[in-house]
Nucleic acid binder design. Structure first.
Lengths: 211, 211
DNA sequence: CCCTTAATGTAACTTTTGTTACTGCCCAAA
DNA sequence: TTTGGGCAGTAACAAAAGTTACATTAAGGG
């Protein structure tokens, strides 16, 4: 396990910390679509993402959900962190965007390391900062952009985290991520196709030229 | 100065920490409307709010702005914190909602205290968590609610931080906070008045019964 | 090869929000 | 007392997004 951690977090953590992580943390593999955290779950450990991508969703108590952001290699979920430290239940849902693996660190350890390793403290703060940044950009999207641009953004992000120009999603799935309806997504996608930005196929979307 | 800090942060910080704060920090008074932080400002110190309220705004590079949340006594601005730690410029604007005062803590001290005082570390983490929570609820508002409910929420929040049932704002000011237009705000407010929720006067709004 | 089902295309309509334009009103300065 | 500027009320229209309904298409199982 140590070499996986080395690979994802080399240059971030000092050697002893990597060793400690390898000793105490549990390695967990996941497949696309796995529900890693559910809203209202108790969080007892903090996940460090080794590879793959995870999507973080927020849910409307009434109806509907929204993609907040993606996590990638080297990321942790600050929302989870917040739950650990604050002793509250999860405010978000985490779903595997594709195949990958995480190491889970027990809360006790992660608090201990805050005092012990400066690199750990920096990492935790950087994670918080990164997440605040992602939240801000989610807010920008919602507050200042129309659905067409939000959709384009989504396609770009999705292509990036999956490292491909072909997005395998149905229009309905996209509609969930943006908290809108399938018909609206289809309508906008068709317009993009007419503009030569994308090519629509069944169950996938090829990106031709966006931006 | 020590007694002010005691009052706002008693039970949070240990005595020595309060003393250190009193020694190193600068006390700054502000008036309603003062611009405390501007977007792109360099941040060299971290503000602890002793009394009064501060509104935190996000701006669209093109046009428009949005109220993210209010800070109150005992709060600090996690976005500012993020800037300090991450050495970046401010992503937000901070404007005094009413008269009050802050103590400003130099970055160097706040980092030093992270290792030295557990209560400080806890406070910093709690601030981050609180702010993540506020961001989430801003996202909920934008993603899941219509303008009428967003407006009602705004009125409630505003009444709370100013500790009054009479809100002294013009419709235009409210429109800025919600990133919409004055006409829309006037229209909705009039509807609320017809429902007996509020009473409209010139330059102020009396809250009668919302929720 | 047919049939079922999920996915997509599209029209028609409604609701919500934004925009423009004009009115009247209050208040304070001249 | 007049007047001018900021504020609020409202109508009429436009644009964006959501909804309903139905047609068409592709893929996979039998």
């Amino acid at each position: 396990m140590e070499e996986f951690i080395q690979e994802a977090y080399s240059g971030i953590f000092e050697k002893e910390l990597v060793k400690e992580i390898a000793e105490t943390a549990a390695l967990i593999d996941f497949e696309e679509g796995d529900r890693l955290i559910e809203i209202n779950d108790y969080i007892r450990s903090m996940p460090l993402l080794l590879n793959g991508a995870i999507k973080i969703m927020r849910e409307d108590p009434d109806e509907g959900e929204l993609l907040l952001y993606f996590l990638e290699k080297g990321d942790t979920c600050a929302m989870t962190l917040a739950c650990c430290m604050g002793q509250t239940r999860s405010a978000i849902r985490a779903i595997a965007e594709n195949k990958g693996s995480v190491v889970m660190i027990p809360v006790t350890k992660m608090e201990e390391w805050l005092g012990k390793y400066k690199s750990w403290r920096n990492y935790v703060f950087e994670s918080y900062n990164k997440r605040l940044g992602e939240m801000l950009s989610a807010i920008d999207n919602l507050a200042f952009m129309h659905m067409d641009d939000r959709l384009l953004n989504y396609l770009k992000e999705k292509a990036k985290v999956n490292n491909t120009t072909v997005i395998s999603s149905t229009h309905q799935e996209i509609a969930y991520a943006l908290n809108t309806s399938r018909v609206v997504v289809s309508r906008l996608l068709k317009a993009f196709e007419n503009d030569g930005k994308i090519k629509l196929n069944r169950n996938n979307i090829e990106i031709i030229a966006i931006d």
